[in-house]
Simulated scan of single mutants.
Amino acid sequence: MPPTDRIRDHAGQGATTVAAHRARRRLRADAARQLADLLRRQLLTGGFPDGTLPHESTLAAEYRASRNTVRQALDLLRAEGLVERLPGVGTVVVAEKYPHGLDRLMGLAETLREHGRVTNEVRTMGPVAAPAPVADRLRTAPGSDVLYIERLRRLNGLPLSLDLTYIPLDIGADLLGADLENNDVFRLLEAITGRRLGHAEITLEAVNADANSAAVLEAPRGAAVLMLERLTHLADGRPVDLEFIRFRGDRISMSGLLHRSL
């Protein structure tokens, strides 16, 4: 074989080896992500009652994965702040996410009452001229005043969400003297109007926390937060509460029961 052909053949083998190595790394990363998803579900739903995950070899055997894949999966969970590696102990659960249901219209204190006490720090409250998108969603006259409320909400003292709320002023005026530190707005709205809330339109997406939101939530700057936009209506269909809620993604999980319509 001529020297040039041998060089080309060697280069081709080298390229094939590199490509194969990259493919193996990609497959292992895919498998680690899949395993992390399964383990995350277990540790967030009490699947490890004593707070300690099984040994890596046990996880590898149970999930038919390599030890390297298990280590990568645990590294992913550690990066999320859900587990930590303790010398002489193993991998332990260090964080808890609280469930927030999406199939019922409930305030945060109602939703999390089994997990502790929700308190509200009212950071800003008062009438403001409604921005055009707010006036449109609440069906108020452009430029008319609405009640604006900004609250930092804590569960058992830990920052959980930053809530920005707009309410038509004919209803919101009665909230100015209400105890918003210890009550959900939903309950107060029903008490003020004498009517039940009916339904809400929601949009849920992940956004990066701006510097101010991150500081208020005591979260890393630029961390992903769950943004819930919710427009709540009274039972007669009138929109009464437009909210933009930033949840710490490492402390809340969203769930619901969905039915397929034929």
Rank of each mutant, 00 (worst) to 15 (best):
A200Y: 02
T124K: 15
A79D: 13
V216W: 01
G177I: 06
A223V: 09
N156F: 04
M254V: 06
P131L: 10
A32L: 09
H259N: 13
D75G: 13
P142T: 03
Q34L: 15
N183S: 15
D184W: 10
T16L: 15
V70P: 03
P159F: 07
L258Y: 10
T232Q: 00
L231S: 01
Y166G: 01
A215F: 07
A215W: 06
L112I: 05
S57A: 10
A132I: 11
A79I: 06
Y63V: 06
G237A: 09
D179H: 11
R248S: 06
S66E: 10
A214F: 02
L242C: 10
E96R: 12
A11I: 15
L189C: 08
A132V: 15
A11N: 12
D250V: 04
N183T: 11
I149H: 00
R22Y: 10
L231W: 01
L102G: 15
V240G: 00
A200R: 04
I202H: 04
I245N: 08
L242R: 11
V118I: 15
A15Q: 11
I167C: 00
F186C: 03
L76G: 04
A73F: 07
R196I: 06
D241L: 14
A32C: 08
G88N: 10
P127Y: 04
V128N: 05
